[in-house]
Amino acid sequence: MADKVVMDSDSVNRTISRIVNQILERNNGAAGVVIVGIRTRGVHIATRIANEIEKLEGIRPEMGTLDITLYRDDLRQKTEWPKVEKTEVPFDLDDKKVILVDDVIYTGRTTRAAIEAIMDFGRPSSIQVVTLIDRGHRELPIQPDYTGLKLNTLSSETVRVHLKEADGKDEVVVVKQ
């Protein structure tokens, strides 16, 4: 087993800053923009994005967190079901531009479940997907709108995103099994 560091702390921060600028550019500022993070690490990245938008634009976008367990398409197969954590979207999503944030996009199934969940909260004017790492191997026709880093990976590898809030430091590691 060998670990390869593909992003260090500085590059994680620079990448998030770049994504924030892309979001503001594409949406002509932060008006009508809301940030929704997918549990667990997507929430930390979403919080950083909201902080930076507040710094640059002077308004803090509303923030929600999503647990997609109840929307998974593999509940009928999974041997052990995950614990259901809290979803908190304490604001109206109608006609909002929803920035959906996850740490890694892989098969696309998590993103699909998250989109379905968001639709149950209202009718946003758009949903835009942010991911820090796109590791390929999509099984559904879903593509991120903002990507931190695109990696060519093997299915046998694992991509680990470590964030200060949860793991003590910012780092992205590819683990070979």
Partner: peptide
């Protein structure tokens, strides 16, 4: 305790516009 913790997460579904999740479809 696990039932109570899970119920905390379930409570939020009842506050939504669409009070339904697909977990037990079929």
């Amino acid at each position: 305790t696990l039932v109570l913790d899970t119920a905390e997460s379930m409570r939020e579904v009842s506050d939504r516009d669409v009070k339904k999740v697909p977990a037990l479809r079929g």
